[in-house]
């Protein structure tokens, strides 16, 4: 028995965002003079990495891709009104409880489609991306011939852009770090295929499970999702 967790629109959003951010990180760090100093441009195929103008072009293109997908996702959310990922009241406390549960100190609360900590992480990540886009647009404007911005604006735009790059990097490290926790691992496959086992949903996402309102027998639920789903069920 399997359940659709991430439809095509969400998977598209996730992976286009991931790809563009990955490229933005590499090309963005390339705006600082480090690839030459640290011999990154000596690695096979990366000779171009220390050329500031090449990495700048790449940064612009990847930024266009990110802006595209942000608008796509924002419009998608507003049209479909699927607000599952938006934080709710009490999410902070519930997140603490989930962390305590991971350490075996408490019982994990029944979750909705997303865990409280996922909803909070989403907001931090999304806000960082928005700040980076806004400051990035200011920087692009400044780079256009004939445009002038006061030194204070240029300085603070650069500092905020750099600071939120670090914040976004930390949220992404935390996002990937979440998969060190076994209970989260079935979610990895679901971001590729969209599907997750019904058993996982019933065990961990009780609120979502009841909303789905599926009239299923235990046998139906236990039908494996796929070969790998067997492992997933063991984890749960």
């Amino acid at each position: 028995m399997k359940i659709m967790r991430h439809n095509l629109a969400i998977r598209f959003t996730h992976w286009v965002t991931a790809l563009s951010i990955l490229v933005l990180f590499f090309s963005g760090f390339g705006q600082m003079p480090i690839y030459k100093r640290y011999y990154v441009d000596q690695l096979p195929g990366l000779g171009w990495s220390s050329d500031f103008l090449i990495t700048l072009h790449i940064h612009y293109w990847a930024a266009a891709m990110l802006i595209f997908v942000v608008f796509y996702y924002a419009a998608y959310l507003s049209i479909t009104k699927k607000w599952d990922i938006i934080p709710k009241k009490g999410d902070l406390r519930e997140s603490m409880q989930i962390f305590a549960a991971i350490l075996g100190l408490a019982e994990e609360p029944d979750s909705d489609k997303y865990l409280a900590e996922q909803r909070l992480a989403f907001v931090v990540t999304a806000l960082s991306i928005l700040v980076l886009i806004v400051t990035g647009i200011i920087k692009v404007y400044k780079n256009l011939p004939g445009n002038y911005l006061p030194p204070e604006v240029v300085f603070w735009t650069a500092q905020i852009h750099n600071l939120f790059t670090v914040i976004l990097l930390l949220t992404i490290i935390a996002h990937l770090g979440a998969f060190l926790i076994k209970a989260n691992r079935p979610l990895v496959a679901s971001m590729f295929t969209g599907w997750i086992s019904a058993d996982y949903v019933r065990q961990r996402h009780g609120k979502w499970w009841s909303k789905l309102n599926l009239d299923l027998t235990d046998e139906q639920i236990d039908i494996p999702l796929s070969a790998s789903a067997e492992e997933n069920r063991e984890v749960i």
Binding site: A9, L53, L56, H57, Y60, W61, A63, A64, M65, I67, F68, V69, V70, F71, Y72, Y73, A74, A75, Y76, I79, V140, N143, L144, P145
Partner: peptide
Amino acid sequence: PAGIAQGMVIAPLAGLMAA
């Protein structure tokens, strides 16, 4: 890059249409 920047204006519109 100034040319690319002008092209970037299309990105939000494309995102809205695709959504």
